[in-house]
Design a protein around this nucleic acid. Sequence first.
RNA 1: GUGGAGGUGGCCCAGCCUGGUAAGGCGUCAGACUGCUAAUCUGAUGUCGCCUUGCGACCCGGGGGUUCGAAUCCCCCCCUCCACGCCA
Length: 423
Amino acid sequence: MLDVSIIRSNPEMIRTMLQNRNKDDDILNNFLAADEEWRQLTNENNGLRKIRNEVSMQISKMSQGTDKDTKIVEMRNVGDKIKANDARMAELDEIRNNCVLNIPNIPDKSVPLGKDSNDNVIVYEWGEKRKFDFKPKEHWEIADDLGIIDFDGGVKVAGSGFYCLRGDGARLERALINYFLDMHHKQGYTEIFPPVIVNKNALIGTGQYPNLKDDMYHLEKDDMYLNPTAEVPLTNLFQDDILEKEQLPIKYTAYLPSFRREVGKHADTRGIIRVHEFNKVEMVRFVLPETSWPALEELRNDAEELIKGLNLPYHVLLLCTGDMSFSCAKCFDLELYAPGKDAWLEASSCSNFTDFQARRARIKYRPEPHLKSEFIHTLNGSGLALPRTMVAILENYQNKDGTVTIPEVLRKYMDGQEIIGKN
RNA sequence: GUGGAGGUGGCCCAGCCUGGUAAGGCGUCAGACUGCUAAUCUGAUGUCGCCUUGCGACCCGGGGGUUCGAAUCCCCCCCUCCACGCCA
């Protein structure tokens, strides 16, 4: 959420921003109109309330009589007028809120202008694509041959878009989760195990609600949602809090299953690249506003360290204005190379949200003990998404005989095992 | 799920029965005083709007209602704690 006073005083800047993000500016016009009327009514009601307060005070001191009765009738009318204005203001307020909640964050100046993913910029590349002396298979074929992913089982118990890990596949998943969390622990993150079900308020706080509401699983009876990313529960842990300056920066990490309905996106992906339920380890940072840009570089580095440890080729994209998600001021995507599919897979997204989420979730700090509290900055990065990391491992580490070599850093989590054979 | 107790500025807590400008304490900051610190005294310490050195309105978990006037009375909902029940 943007600061309302910035929208008021700088509407043209917001208009340009919306254009850069391929968004319509109706939302801005609606806001400005509703806000203008709201402020008028606010002033009118302030005046009326002042009168009512004063006269009510007089009434309390008057003795019974016609004067008193006249005043009471007068004030009854004033009260009705206030109530009518309030009703209109409630409507306007809802319009305003809806608009403000749907206006995306302002991209940082360093974000390239662009329309879509074609305009993203590769800012870093690491590792070499392996040269195969056989035709590398795609992950689903490898996994199926080895019996480490049971696609049919997932469909039986849940439905299309769900899968089941089996034997060494399940163990590899668990090894990856442990590896990621252990690395983050070394990087100074506090490990959290939050709830998997979150409420609407939390989703508003991080910006998934309302604009992604149709992509989430909604538990109607309780009006709760299945977690779409651990960013939601982690960031909202400090909802409504005023933090001490000395507490910052706070670095949290969590492993949590994540759920996406992925409506209409399903057609062309076979395997586990796009699924409804996947595991993910997430990092979230709560920082002083002046330190959020260096913190983004650190965060990105923390995620990259994991990939380097696994020795997987990857590159880093700086997303352009048109491709960046709603809450970000700046975002890097980390993409792993998958030789079987010959494609780059997004395994992590590292973003600085500046004060956008903090304002929505009301997370503040006090710059100095006697000064007014201000919004902190929040950042978040995946470290990493499990299925796509699994795909990259299977495809990069596959052997001619159909087995898969286990990356060295994971072996200690798998009793020293080096190879995944037929399960 | 049942019964009880609660939710009041950053924190604690009074006021509610009996409607009439939200009291007090702690913490923090500033000023005063004092060799320094401490103590003490004074002031500041929530949100919004506007004609922005200031003025005004709002704020007692959330939403409605009654009333000239609601923290206070009525209705609905949420959350926390305690006890009992059920349960992996």
